[in-house]
Computed example of a mutant assay.
Amino acid sequence: MTKEELMKFEEFILDSFSNDIMNRELRLSLEEKEYLEKMYSRVIIEEMDEYKSGEKKEWYKVSFPSL
């Protein structure tokens, strides 16, 4: 990702998990998924096989467990 894309993605993630929301279904590219796993060690990302499309982005259940 470019620096600009990375900033937009970070903003998207912060917005997606604001207001104490800890679970979301998100459509992510492999690069975005790997970035989340690298940057947030506690993140849980599960593929949603029922929505498998074979496209550039896939659907995932993304969770940040409470401490």
Score class of each variant (00 low, 15 high):
53 S>N: 13
33 K>V: 03
65 P>N: 09
48 M>N: 09
61 K>I: 13
67 L>D: 08
65 P>R: 11
48 M>G: 00
26 L>Y: 01
33 K>N: 06
45 I>L: 05
37 E>W: 05
31 E>D: 10
60 Y>F: 14
40 Y>G: 07
5 E>K: 13
31 E>W: 09
28 L>D: 03
43 V>W: 05
48 M>P: 00
9 F>H: 08
46 E>Q: 13
54 G>Y: 00
18 S>P: 01
47 E>M: 07
5 E>A: 07
23 N>S: 09
67 L>C: 04
4 E>M: 08
24 R>K: 15
1 M>F: 06
13 I>T: 04
44 I>P: 00
26 L>K: 02
24 R>P: 00
66 S>F: 12
42 R>G: 05
63 S>Q: 11
46 E>M: 12
45 I>K: 02
40 Y>S: 05
50 E>L: 08
6 L>E: 15
44 I>R: 13
22 M>P: 01
57 K>M: 11
31 E>N: 10
35 Y>C: 05
46 E>L: 12
12 F>L: 08
18 S>N: 08
44 I>S: 05
60 Y>N: 01
16 S>C: 05
10 E>K: 15
13 I>N: 01
27 R>S: 09
63 S>T: 15
52 K>S: 07
39 M>C: 06
10 E>R: 13
5 E>W: 04
3 K>L: 10
63 S>W: 04
4 E>I: 07
39 M>N: 07
55 E>F: 11
54 G>D: 00
49 D>T: 08
5 E>T: 00
17 F>G: 00
9 F>S: 12
36 L>W: 09
10 E>S: 14
3 K>E: 11
60 Y>K: 02
55 E>K: 14
46 E>T: 14
33 K>S: 05
16 S>T: 12
8 K>T: 14
20 D>G: 01
55 E>W: 09
14 L>R: 05
14 L>M: 06
17 F>R: 00
45 I>P: 01
15 D>I: 11
25 E>D: 06
15 D>C: 12
38 K>S: 13
